[in-house]
Design a protein around this nucleic acid. Structure first.
Lengths: 220, 220
DNA sequence: TAGGTACTGTACGGTTCGGTACGGCGTTCA
DNA sequence: TGAACGCCGTACCGAACCGTACAGTACCTA
C-alpha cells in the first residue's frame, strides 16, 4: 500500500482552488457554530459565492459536509515514515513526538468540530446502507493514518528490540489509551480542559514512561 | 456536596410516572434514529400523548432533551460503595468488575445515543452563557459517578497497600485509558466493534494486569 | 463584435418542524 | 348532576432552510 503516488497534498482531491477556499470558510463556520450553523445560504454569503455554485460543486448539503471532511483529512501530513530511531533514547523521543502530535491534533478545535459533526451524523443501529457515512471517512483518512504511523514506529521499535509485544494493534491501543485517557471524550462534550502546552508534555512524559514500562524488552 | 438526601433513585427528579414513560419512549426514538429523529410530533404520536402535554411538562424541545439525559442519568445505580475488598485477589476482582461495567455502559446503545446527542449540542468555543448545557449534565451525573466509584476503590486499594500512587485522579485516568483505549470514540463514530462479551473480559484482563503492573506496591 | 462559459445575487417553491390554540373526552370531586 | 381538571388529537401558524430558477455580470475566445 501507500504507493509513492501522492500527487499534491494541497491541491489534491480534485478540489479547485476556489472550492478549497469555500471549504475553508465552511470549516470555520463549522468550528465556531457547530453543525446547524452551516447553512447553504450562510455559507454562500460568508464565502461570497452563490448557492447555485455550491450545488453545482458539491451536489447537496451532505456533499458539502462530506467535502469538508475529505478536504481537511487530505491535509494531515504524511507522517515522516523515515523516522527510524537507532538508539533507545531516540526511540523514546519519537514516541514522545507522536504523543504530542496526537494530543495537539485530537484536542484542536477543528478536529473536535469535525468529530462532532461526524458523530452527529451517525444514526443509531441501522445506519443507511452505506455503513457509516461521514464517520467512516473521518476514521479512514484521519485516525487510520495516525494509527499507521504509530504502528510503524512500534514495529520498528520491536525489530530494534527496544520493546516487545505480540499484537501491534493491541500495543497501539494501549499507547493511545495511556496518552489520551478520557481527555478526548470530555473535550468533545465541551468540558474544556487544558490547552496548556506544558501540560501536554507532562502528560506525554507520564504516558510514554508507563508504556515503556509495560512493553519493555525483558532482556534489558 | 452530595448530601445524604437521595430520595428515590427511580421516581426521583420530579418526574411523573407518565412523564417517565414518555421519556422512555423518547429515549428509544433517540437510540434508533439519532437527534433529528426525535421531533415533538413524532414523540407525541409514539408516546400517545399530545404535543400540548409535552410543552406543559418540559417547556420546549430543549427541555425534553435535557429531561431525557437527566432521567437516564438518574438510573445509574449508586455503585455499591461498600465493596472494600480485603485480599489482593478480591481487589483485583473488584477492578475487573468495574472494568466490565464501564465497558458495558460506555458501549451500550443508549449511552452512545446520549453521548452523541450531548456532543451534537456543543457549539464551538463560546457555548452560550450556560457553559456547556447538556454535555455538562451528562458528564456530571454520568461520568462523575463512575469516576467516584473508581476512585473510591483505588483509594481503598492504596490504603490496603495493594497499589500505590500519588494522584488518585491520574491513576483513574490511566485505568480508564487502559480499559477503553479508542473504543469509545470509534463506537461513537459508528465504527461498530465487538459486542462480544468474552472480548470484554479479555480486554478487562489485559487492562487490569497492566494497571497493576504500573501501580504495584514496590514492597511486594 | 458576437457568443460561450462560469459565476454571483436574489427571489421563490416546497417542506419540515417547533410551538400554540381549540374542541372533545374521561375522571374526580363537590 | 355538573363543574373543574388533565389530557388527547388535530389543526394551524410562522420561521428556517434546502434546493432550484433566473437574470445580470465579468472574462475569454473566435
Amino acid at each position: 500500500m501507500a504507493l509513492a503516488h501522492s500527487p499534491d497534498p494541497v491541491t489534491d482531491a480534485a478540489f479547485t482552488e476556489r472550492q478549497a477556499a469555500v471549504l475553508e470558510v465552511a470549516l470555520n463556520l463549522l468550528v465556531e457554530g457547530g453543525d446547524k450553523a452551516l447553512t447553504t445560504a450562510g455559507l454562500a454569503k460568508a464565502a461570497n459565492c452563490s448557492k447555485e455554485s455550491l450545488y453545482k460543486w458539491f451536489g447537496d448539503r451532505e456533499g458539502i459536509l462530506s467535502a469538508i471532511v475529505t478536504y481537511q483529512a487530505s491535509k494531515v501530513r504524511g507522517a515522516d515514515e523515515r523516522a527510524n530511531p537507532t538508539t533507545k533514547e531516540d526511540f523514546k523521543q519519537a514516541l514522545s513526538a507522536f504523543s504530542e502530535d496526537l494530543l495537539a491534533v485530537l484536542l484542536s478545535e477543528t478536529s473536535l468540530a469535525l468529530n462532532r459533526l461526524s458523530i452527529g451524523q451517525v444514526r443509531g443501529e441501522a445506519a443507511r446502507g452505506e455503513s457509516a457515512g461521514l464517520g467512516a471517512v473521518l476514521v479512514d483518512r484521519g485516525k487510520r493514518r495516525i494509527e499507521a504511523r504509530a504502528i510503524h514506529l512500534l514495529t520498528h521499535g520491536k525489530r530494534q528490540r527496544f520493546i516487545t509485544f505480540d499484537d501491534a494493534a493491541d500495543a497501539y491501543t494501549t499507547l493511545y489509551g495511556l496518552i489520551i485517557g478520557d481527555l478526548h471524550i470530555r473535550a468533545l462534550l465541551g468540558d474544556h480542559p487544558d490547552l496548556d502546552d506544558s501540560e501536554h508534555q507532562a502528560r506525554t512524559r507520564a504516558a510514554i514512561d508507563r508504556f515503556l514500562t509495560l512493553f519493555a524488552n525483558a532482556l534489558d
